[in-house]
Amino acid sequence: MSAMFKHGCQDAGLGHLSARGVRKGLAEMRSSQYDIMAILGHSEAKTNEVYTRRIERWNLAKTAMAKVGSGCVG
């Protein structure tokens, strides 16, 4: 599947892209694992969890720290 994706990207003039790169990029743009599943046609969330878990955890930490910084805890 990955090779097919890569060939499709090359045919479209986007040879620098890979399935992994697209999943990672979407996760970094704050797409949820379910958003990525819908875009790439995945049937299981596990495929994207590796990419989204780290980003989602980082975003939760930033939100929490913003609350601490503004005194809005609790």
Rank of each mutant, 00 (worst) to 15 (best):
L14H: 03
D11L: 07
A27Q: 10
V22T: 08
K6L: 05
I55Y: 10
G74H: 07
E44W: 14
V73D: 03
L17Q: 00
Q33N: 12
D11S: 05
T63P: 02
D35C: 04
V50R: 14
M4W: 10
G41M: 10
A61N: 11
M1S: 11
V68T: 02
K24Y: 00
R30V: 11
E49Q: 14
G71W: 00
E56N: 14
A61I: 13
I39W: 11
D11P: 00
H16E: 02
G69Y: 03
G74F: 07
C9I: 00
G69S: 02
A66H: 10
A3E: 13
K46A: 13
T52P: 09
W58A: 14
K6I: 03
A27E: 05
H16A: 04
S70C: 01
I39H: 08
S43E: 14
V22I: 08
N59R: 15
A64S: 08
S32W: 04
S32A: 07
D35T: 08
H7M: 09
V73I: 06
L26C: 08
L17A: 00
K46R: 12
R53W: 05
S18T: 08
K6F: 06
A38I: 04
L14D: 00
S18N: 04
M29Q: 14
Y51T: 04
L17I: 02
S43T: 15
H7R: 12
L60S: 13
Y34N: 09
T63L: 09
S18F: 04
G74P: 07
R23N: 03
V73Q: 01
E28Y: 13
A45R: 15
N59D: 13
S2D: 11
R53I: 06
A61F: 14
A19W: 04
R30L: 09
D35I: 06
M29W: 15
E44A: 12
Y34R: 09
G13P: 01
D35Y: 06
S43A: 15
D35R: 09
S43I: 11
V50M: 03
A64F: 08
H16K: 07
N48G: 13
G13Q: 00
S43R: 15
V22G: 02
I39G: 06
Y34H: 10
K24T: 05
Q10E: 06
G25S: 05
E44Y: 15
M29I: 06
G69N: 02
G21N: 02
V22C: 05
Y51W: 11
E49V: 14
T63F: 08
L40W: 06
S18R: 05
S2N: 11
L14P: 01
R57W: 11
L14W: 02
L60Y: 10
L26S: 03
Q10C: 03
F5K: 02
V73R: 03
R23T: 07
M37L: 11
K67N: 01
M37Q: 13
L26I: 02
L40E: 06
M29D: 14
A61Y: 10
R30K: 14
R54G: 09
T52D: 11
E49I: 12
Y34W: 11
E28A: 10
E44R: 15
D11Q: 05
K24M: 06
A3P: 08
L14F: 04
G8V: 01
N48M: 13
T52A: 13
